[in-house]
Amino acid sequence: MSFDRTQIEEGVREVLEEALGVDAEDVKPTSTLTGDLGAESIDFLDIQFRLEKKFSTPAKPFKIEQGELFPENMLQDASMVENGKVTDKGFTLLKAKLPHIDFSNFEKDRSVGKLGEVFTVKSLTDFVDNKLKA
């Protein structure tokens, strides 16, 4: 069994409805997980597990490695953040580790507090789509 783009969008929406207790109509491609849908850090683990379950098939398990979808503890490293902003080194690493994320808005001021806003419904869908094709 393979998933087309519409099935992936539906699957991601169902995962977010279940994990965050939000209504289907609130889950739009541009919705941010933390800002619009109210996700907190612990929800990311739940979302990861639910995506794996949703998109695994007996023939092809869908396994997301730690740090592959969301950044792990890298921003605790002092060389990655300076005065509340992601450094050049940190930004390069973020882009390398999270190629499914569109950083164009974040790049303007790189405030750590705004990092959560880069995770949108579309970025999750793109991540799943790319990973399933790989």
Binding site: S41, I42, F44, L45, D46, F49, Q66, F70, E72, N73, L75, Q76
Partner: peptide, 11 residues
């Protein structure tokens, strides 16, 4: 859902 807190995301 359980978390292994030594590997928590907040560091």
């Amino acid at each position: 859902v359980f978390s292994h807190i030594d590997n928590n995301r907040s560091g």
